[in-house]
Amino acid sequence: MTHSTTDSTRTVTGGAGDASHVVVDVRRRPTTWTGLWFVLPFLAFYLLFLVWPAIVGLGYSFTDRSLAGGPVSLVGLDNWNESLTDPALYDSLWNTLVFTLLSVPIMVLLALGLALLTDHARRLGWFLRLSFFAPFVLPVAVMALIWEWMYNPSLGLFNGVLGQIGLEGSQWLFSEDTAMFSVVIATAWWQVGFNYLLYLAAMQSIPKDVYEAASIDGAGAWQRVGRITLPMLSRTTVLITVLQLIGSLRVFEQVYLMTGGGPNFATRTIIQYIYDSGFVGLRIGLASSMAYIFMALVVVVSIAQFRFFAQKED
């Protein structure tokens, strides 16, 4: 698909001087094995560490294999039945969905807002970029340690400051009601920098004369943002939303480190449940069936998104 478009473009653009040469070069490019040799090293990694585990994992899901070893026997669809009727699986899927629905709008809109600020306050440019993007390069464990410390209900910065201005503190990570939202806030601080840079780059690629023309026509700053910047960013917004949605569905590490899935499993995500079943409960077969259920959901959501947005773009 992709290469055929490229090839035809090439035929058109390259056809200036001696078109016949180009056509021969592209259309009847000799089918050799050279290309395969180039692809082979990646393919080896890909087959060994992705395709093979994917096949083996599907096989495991029909067995009672244990991480502790011992005899393995086929159990048919038992693992799949157990997973699909397990309320805890649906709870963990729900928690993942809650995280996604909270984090996607926050991380898209926040990125847009911060990028708009940076794009207009040009003289603070380097300082703003540094502040907003720097947290992105922190290891998740560092981010988790710092935020757990700030969220600490009795000794932390947040409740301390709230107390000083006479407000009641929160339990943050230690209450079922606030734990997930607290993780979302920390995640936004940590990861928004990537979306922010994407927005900023898109804004700075909008031609200056468009703004100048609007200014001459008497458009104010707000009007220029609303009528020019935002509409011209729609492609970027689609891209960021798609990437963020797929990324948020895969959430695990920061939640696991900050709450361990608690309190009372209120923040246990699906990936943590797969980990708990396979590496704590040692039931490889059961964990594999869960992994496949989740993988199927992610693939369906991803494909649906791409089709939806591809149609919209046309």
């Binding site: 994917a54 495991y60 594999s288």
Partner: peptide, 20 residues
């Protein structure tokens, strides 16, 4: 085949990868 791999969350393969 390779581009399709973008869709697969690597975290779902942790169990068979670990066994491997």
């Amino acid at each position: 085949l390779i581009i399709g791999g973008i869709l697969i969350p690597p975290q779902t393969l942790i169990v068979p990868q670990f066994v491997l």
